[in-house]
């Protein structure tokens, strides 16, 4: 029974991955709209783009990790 609850919890934690996907999409989409307005400045900001994506994605990875822990370690 407890294992079942853990599996449900893992499924709930996986929602966080979707939320991270929204975050990453936000970062990339806003970068793209900014880059299309001012393409000359875009090349110098790709590093910032990747840092932003990495930060947004890290939180999704955390929720994925929680899901894994619930699946395999509880």
């Amino acid at each position: 029974m407890e294992g079942d609850l853990a599996h449900i919890g893992a499924g709930l934690a996986a929602i966080g991955s979707g939320a991270a996907a929204i975050g990453v999409g936000n970062v990339a989409g806003n970068f793209l709209s900014g880059a299309l307005r001012n393409p000359s400045a875009a090349a110098s900001q790709t590093a910032t783009l990747f840092i932003g994506i990495a930060f947004a994605e890290a939180l999704g990875i955390f929720s994925f990790l929680v899901a894994l822990l619930l699946m395999f370690a509880v």
Binding site: A54, E57, A58, I61, F62, F64, L68
Partner: peptide, 16 residues
């Protein structure tokens, strides 16, 4: 923490 878990988590997730 985020620096390490990002790398390991990404790879683990993809392979899994």
């Amino acid at each position: 923490v985020s620096h390490s878990i990002r790398l390991a988590g990404n790879l683990m997730a993809g392979h899994a």
